[in-house]
Amino acid sequence: MGVDLAVTLGSVRLNNPVMLASGCCGYGMDMEPHLDLNRLGGVCLKGLSMAGSEGNKPPRIWETQGGMLNAIGLQNIGVSRFLAEKAPKLRTYGTAFVANFYGHTVDQYMEAARALGEEPALAALEMNISCPNIQEGGIQFGTDPASVYKVTKACRGATKKPLWVKLSPNAADVAATAKAAQDAGADALTCINTMPAMAIDVERREFRISNKVGGLSGPALKPIAVRIVYQVAKAVTIPVVGIGGVATAADALEFILAGAKAVQVGTALFVDPQCPYAILRGIEDYCARHGFPSVESLVGQVKDGAPMPKCHE
C-alpha cells in the first residue's frame, strides 16, 4: 500500500509535506520553467508589503562555507500589484499558496493581512517577523515575546485566513516567542528564518554585502534549525513547519522527526530547482522502508528518551 503523503496544518491540507520557501521561488510562476508546482505540497511566495520595496543596494549575496548570506531587502511589487497581476494566475493550481508578508509598523502588518486575506488563491498567510535585512520591522518584532504577541494578535484580528508566523532564530528564547505567537492566535509556526550573519573581504577591508549584515541560509544553518524545530514543537500544540538548509530527503526527515509537519526548501533550489522531487521521493521511500503508513505518523518520532538538559531548553 502507498504511503499517505498528505499533511494537515490546522485547516490547511497539503498534498505532501514539501513546500518552497519564501524568497526562493518568486511569486510561484517564476519557478514554472523548472518545476511543476502541482507536485509540491505548497509554495510560500516572496515577502510582500503594502508599499512594495526596491530592496537593498547590491551586492546582495555572498557565498559562505556550506551556505550563503543574503540581504535582498525584501524587494517586492507590493500587495496591490500582487493581487492584481499575480494572484489571479495562482487560482488555477492544485497546490497550496501561502503569501508571506511584512510591515514596518503593526498597522502595516494588519493592512497587508487584511488585503491578502481576501484573495481566494491563498491557502494561508505567513507573517514574516524575522527578516534580518530591513531597517525597521521584520526581526525587531520577532525577537521579543511581547511584540510577537502584539503583532500576531493584530493580524489575527485582520484576517480569517490561516495565519502562520515565521520565527527568527535570533530570539534569546525561541520557545517563548513561539508560545507568544500561539497565544495570540497563530495557526502554525514556520521555523526558522535566516540567521543574521556577516562576511568581510580582508584584502579590501570591506563588507561582502552592502547591507553589512545578511541572513545565513543553506546547509550551514540546518543543525540550528532542527534544534529550534524540536524545541518549538515541544513548546506549542499548533503545527510547526521546518525550514533551514533542507536540500535532501534526509534533511527533511530530520525536521519531520524533530516535530515538523512540513518542510520548506529554499537555498537548495538555487543549486537544483527540481530538488523538491527527490526530497519527496526520499520521504516516501523512507516511510515505506520503516513501516510508517503516512508522513503524519512520522512527525516528532525521534526516539526522545531523557529530556534535554535544562540549560538548552
Binding site: 521561488c25 557565498e63 550563503m68 535582498i72 524587494q75 530547482p273
Partner: peptide
C-alpha cells in the same frame, strides 16, 4: 554575483 541564475533570488 548570482544565487539562482533563473530569476527567483533577486541577488544579482
Amino acid at each position: 554575483r548570482m544565487g539562482c541564475g533563473y530569476g527567483v533570488c533577486l541577488g544579482c
